[in-house]
Design a protein around this nucleic acid. Structure first.
Lengths: 189, 189
DNA sequence: CAAATACAGAACGAAGTGTTTTGTAATAAA
DNA sequence: TTTATTACAAAACACTTCGTTCTGTATTTG
């Protein structure tokens, strides 16, 4: 792949995330991104059809990455090797978030962060499905599997949102304990 | 109050909700609202500073109303007098939603409905606080009160979202049972 | 009836969007 | 190295939407 392409693509992503840390999504004009990334107008539209697609691409790359690693690519994140293997996936995720990889926290705690929380939650569904639901069967016979998956995914996304909106005062372990306290009882019938 | 004011204000609200049932919020131009409401441009901006403020006003009126009635204004909704008094507030809310008062379902099940779900959830917090938290003390000693309020509010909003995105196939009673199944165990320590 | 006010219609500048054109520099392939 | 391809910058473009301003009319209120 052309080095120029990769370079500008990353410059746009970087400029976009930097801007998102200051302004909300709808306050950012394409021109702002061009100025911040030092990129021509034609170039931007050669890479991304529109500003919404840029957002989509960024979210897929960011949340896709963080959740893929959480779902079982231990090679990709060796500096987390100190994780106790008994730790749950969610604690792993919380720790990963606290590392603020690629400034992901700026997005999730920005004003009007619902957009990102939605992407986060949708990506979480895959993880939750793999984690709790085996073969489409709900671990709680009183609840439909898709309702449970939606509920747990939303609960974790909201937990993260609560955590961030408070300035991450708690340890990941504490937050994980809160999350477990509101989800584990459900799974036990 | 001038009848003309009330009339145009309601015409704008009606046009806006009708449009929201078809398009997403950001696809709706002010001009569309003017055409649908048959109202002049000057008039619109005399009533609402901007399109965002119109959204805010609509949401406050809608969710404020539905939650106020749920929190204890039995006189305001006599046709729900058949409600069993042992029914919870949330079942009451679900029934109220199913009545589709002022086409509120069009908003909550529209594309890009996160905006409305956010308003819904925020308004729910007051109800949840009044319902579960007494004097700022959490009913579950292991969890902070604000975390619990946020969790339960989000859980109900997501339950409604799940219900609507499925075409409301279940009874309000069934949905309420699902919601209770994921929230009640938390309150019991 | 008189004064105040809500309204329609039209025009306006400003801002943002996405496209097109022209020319240049970097890259990949021969 | 040479050649062809590709990515890019710069500027201008038509278009849409926004929010304001002006003028004149209809309605309400006192």
């Amino acid at each position: 792949m052309d080095r120029r392409q990769k370079k500008t693509r990353e410059a746009i992503f970087r400029a976009f995330t930097d801007l998102l840390a200051k302004k909300s999504y709808h306050q950012i004009a394409v021109q702002d991104i061009l100025d911040e990334a030092d990129v021509g107008r034609t170039t931007f539209y050669a890479h991304f059809e529109t500003k919404d697609y840029l957002l989509k691409a960024l979210c897929e790359e960011l949340f896709g990455h963080i959740l893929d690693t959480a779902m079982g690519f231990p090679h990709a994140h060796d500096h987390y090797a100190n994780c106790d293997s008994t730790d749950g996936v969610f604690l792993h995720l919380l720790r990963h978030l606290q590392e603020n990889d690629r400034n992901i926290l700026a997005l999730l705690s920005s004003p009007n962060n619902e957009i990102f929380l939605r992407y986060f939650k949708e990506n979480l569904k895959h993880l939750v499905t793999a984690q709790y639901v085996g073969g489409g069967q709900s671990p709680n016979p009183h609840l439909p599997a898709d309702y449970l998956v939606n509920h747990i995914s939303a609960a974790f996304a909201e937990t993260v949102n609560w955590w961030l909106s408070h300035g991450r005062r708690e340890d990941p372990e504490t937050v994980n304990a809160y999350f477990m306290a509101v989800t584990e009882p459900i799974l036990r019938g």
